[in-house]
């Protein structure tokens, strides 16, 4: 990868991705942080395309940008009385120190290690190879992942649904509030 286009694509996508990640860190509003996270996901999808992993890039857009972001936005909007200032806990300075140490150590290892044979050309037809591996040598993990997803979704629904009594009490309080509002305004 030494063309001008590769350089341009890599550096612009890198700036978008890391800049959006830093935006999550500094933004003072949780919704803005979420938008920054979506931008970061899109940047990572572009980097996958640059690495000739089209299938992973599409899955990234579908699952992260499409599903997970919407789920998290729903969760933010469904917790209206919780604080949305995106502030830090007392772990702020220990967290900063740990972040610096982890980045320094990982960058040092990445630059100092000899990673062996470098493939010049990307593997062609990556989606076909991934699909064939999923039903040949990785079929057992594939089934386990299916069971895990089912269990997680059933568990999420079981956790998030209210009990029937809760719903009744909630509806009652809503109708009471409505009556008080209409009584006050008339």
């Amino acid at each position: 990868m030494d063309g001008v286009g590769h350089h341009l694509a890599f550096w612009s996508l890198a700036v978008i991705t890391v800049g959006a990640a830093l935006g999550i860190l500094v933004s003072r509003n949780l919704i803005h942080a979420m938008v920054m996270l979506i931008l970061s996901f899109i940047g990572v999808a572009g980097l996958y395309l640059l690495l000739s992993a089209e299938f992973i890039a599409v899955v990234q857009i579908l699952v992260y940008v499409g599903a997970i972001s919407v789920l998290m936005l729903f969760a933010i909007l469904l917790t209206p009385r919780a604080a949305r200032d995106n502030a830090e806990t007392a772990m702020r300075y220990p967290g900063l120190i740990l972040m610096g140490l982890v980045i320094a150590a990982t960058v040092f290892v990445a630059l100092e290690t000899d990673w062996g044979a470098v493939r010049e050309e990307p593997v062609a037809e990556s989606a076909r190879i991934i699909g064939q591996s999923l039903i040949n040598e990785f079929v057992l993990p594939f089934e386990i992942a299916a069971v895990l997803l089912t269990a997680a979704l059933v568990g999420a629904v079981a956790l998030a649904r209210r009990d029937d009594e809760d719903i009744d009490a909630h509806e009652q309080s809503l109708t009471l509030e409505g009556r008080e509002d209409s009584g006050g305004s008339s």
């Binding site: 990640a21 990572v44 604080a83 502030a87 772990m91 220990p94 610096g100 982890v102 980045i103 960058v107």
Partner: peptide
């Protein structure tokens, strides 16, 4: 590594 570090800080230090 940069992305991981920023994610680690956000996961450790955010209040929400």
């Amino acid at each position: 590594a940069l992305l991981f570090g920023v994610g680690l800080y956000v996961a450790l230090a955010k209040r929400n």
